[in-house]
Amino acid sequence: MFDTDSLLKLAKLTYTSQSVFRILFFLGKFKVHKDLKTTKKEIEKLNIDLKDWIDKDTDLKIECEREGNHDFRSVDTASVLAGIIKKKTGHENFTFKHPDLIIYIYINNNQGYIGIDFAGKNLSKRQYKIFQSRNSIKATLAYSLIRISGFSKNKLLADVFSREGIIPIEAALFTQDYPVNFFTKHELIFTKLKPLKNVDFEDFFKNIDKNIKKTKREIYAVDALLKYVKFSKKNAKIAGVLDAISFSKKEMEWLDLKFDKTEVDCIVSYPVQMTKRRNKKEIKKLYNEFFYQCEYILKDKGKIVLLSKDSKYLEEEGKKYKFKVEKKREVYSGMMKYLVLTFVKE
Rank of each mutant, 00 (worst) to 15 (best):
M1N: 10
F2N: 10
F2C: 11
T4Y: 06
L8E: 10
A11P: 01
K12Q: 06
K12Y: 04
T16Y: 06
S19Y: 12
S19P: 00
F21I: 11
L24M: 04
L24G: 02
F25W: 15
G28D: 04
F30S: 01
K31R: 11
H33F: 15
K34W: 11
K37N: 13
K37C: 07
K37V: 14
T39E: 00
I43L: 11
E44K: 02
L50C: 03
K51V: 09
K56T: 03
D57T: 03
I62P: 01
E63M: 01
E63Q: 08
C64R: 06
C64T: 10
E65I: 14
E67G: 09
D71N: 10
S79K: 10
V80H: 08
K86D: 04
T95D: 01
F96W: 05
F96P: 02
F96S: 08
H98K: 11
H98I: 10
D100C: 03
I102E: 07
I103G: 03
I103T: 02
N108K: 15
G115T: 01
D117F: 02
D117E: 00
F118D: 01
S124Q: 15
S124V: 09
K125A: 12
Q127H: 13
I130M: 13
Q132K: 13
Q132W: 05
R134I: 13
R134F: 12
I137M: 09
A139W: 06
T140Q: 13
L141W: 09
L145V: 14
I146M: 04
G150P: 06
F151M: 08
S152C: 05
N154C: 09
N154D: 14
N154T: 05
N154H: 12
L157V: 00
V160H: 11
F161R: 01
S162F: 05
R163Y: 14
G165A: 02
I166F: 06
I167W: 04
A172I: 01
L173Q: 07
T175V: 15
Y178C: 06
V180S: 13
F182N: 04
T184N: 15
E187C: 09
I189F: 04
I189Y: 03
K192M: 01
L193C: 05
P195A: 05
D200A: 03
E202P: 00
K206C: 02
K214Y: 15
T215N: 12
K216S: 06
R217P: 14
E218T: 07
K227D: 11
K227G: 00
A236I: 09
K237T: 14
L242T: 04
I245T: 04
F247G: 07
S248V: 05
E251G: 12
L255K: 03
D265G: 02
I267G: 08
S269W: 05
N279S: 04
E282P: 01
K285Y: 05
Y287V: 12
Y292W: 07
K299S: 05
D300Y: 10
K303H: 13
K303Q: 13
K309G: 11
K309D: 12
K312Q: 07
Y313N: 15
E315C: 08
E315K: 15
E315Q: 12
E316Q: 14
G318W: 06
K319T: 02
Y321R: 12
K324F: 08
E326H: 10
Y332A: 00
Y332M: 00
S333A: 12
K337H: 07
